[in-house]
Design a protein around this nucleic acid. Structure first.
Lengths: 195, 195
DNA sequence: AACGTTCTTGACCGAATGGTCAAGTGCTCG
DNA sequence: CGAGCACTTGACCATTCGGTCAAGAACGTT
């Protein structure tokens, strides 16, 4: 659905995406109909299909942009920090903070991962995130900061830990981001036994 | 939907659950219709509603039984191992092995967690798993095997790590369970820096 | 003002979907 | 055998959904 959009058009498009993302996260993708989206926005159904060719494309677009935004935030947080271990730590903190501010995308990512139609897209996003982390881990190994293990596995483990702790403590229990980030960083760096 | 079931009835019920679980995991819960389930089983629609009051109840039942089965497997694997750290390790291995044999439930758990209607049930299951792990962790702390940190957070981190590694290596890349379990255990025990 | 383009409307459509039910089959036990 | 309960059938129903489209409104450009 490539169209020429005026400024007004771009804003409508954004509005639709933001609004739909909220509804999808709240009530689920399938139970939220296109009619629900446009009605709660007070516009006709044609508006939706002017900006998106299908409901599926809409969610794909939402997921793509959300991932882009998260990644930007991570890179910005890391800046030009020279120590790779510190970079990992900054990345973890930035991720948790971003999810706190964009709670709805957490649910969306989770749903999309379990749906045949969106899993491949999400998988690509995930791979990018892993590749980012792997770069820092490899550097940290070279510099002797961390033990020489499979960097990819370590990256996956970090992602798993961060997601789980974010879900449980930041979302379900409203714990402060700091304490959660602290725990995530500590676990990732030292595990159960370490330190 | 409490009914008196004969042996024949119990088998039908199991058959429906097994079969539906497979379809749900493969094509997703919403896209799989009740008609799909009964047709691919070669029975009439009435059969379904004889054993389950709704499609929703069916999935809830599947999730409940799957969790029970996984937990049984964990307890059986742990046996009467005296060392709490070893118990954690055995639990991790048993979990990964169980998921390898019951791949479909992994997808189902993931979907259910993102659906308003099933999230509470899944949350209860999750809490039971965390409570199990916390018991071992507390004991390990008392015995001085691992550092004195919040046991619940450690348990959540372990679950997150195991799930992520299982998803990526066992399912998506068909890596051997052993290597995955090894990595998970190593990360959980020592983190990035440790050892 | 006039014209082409962008945007909006909302009735409409065919194709599901979850769930019901009256009717019937087959098993079991007295 | 026959009565009663467990199970099965599949047509049927109300509803909903994603998506279309002909018609027209708003906007920008000249």
């Amino acid at each position: 659905m490539r169209r020429k959009l005026t400024q007004r058009g771009k804003e409508r498009r954004r509005q639709l995406m933001e609004h739909a993302a909220g509804l999808f996260a709240e009530r689920g993708y399938h139970p939220t109909s296109v009619a629900d989206i446009v009605e709660s926005l007070g516009v006709g159904k044609g508006v939706f299909y002017w900006y998106f060719s299908s409901k599926e494309e809409l969610l794909a677009e939402i997921l793509r942009e959300a991932h882009q935004d998260l990644r930007r935030r991570q890179q910005q947080a890391i800046g030009d920090e020279p120590n790779p271990v510190t970079r990992i730590e900054l990345g973890i903190r930035a991720t948790i903070e971003w999810f706190l501010e964009h709670r709805k995308y957490f649910t969306l990512f989770q749903f999309a991962a379990s749906d045949e139609r969106f899993a491949p897209l999400l998988r690509r996003n995930h791979d990018v995130a892993i590749a980012d982390a792997v770069r820092h881990i490899k550097e940290a190994i070279v510099e002797g900061h961390i033990a020489d293990q499979n960097p990819e596995m370590l990256a996956e483990a970090i992602v798993g830990t961060v997601n789980q702790l974010t879900q449980t403590y930041v979302f379900e229990r409203s714990e402060p981001v700091d304490r959660t980030a602290e725990a995530a960083v500590s676990f990732c760096l030292h595990g159960l036994v370490g330190k």
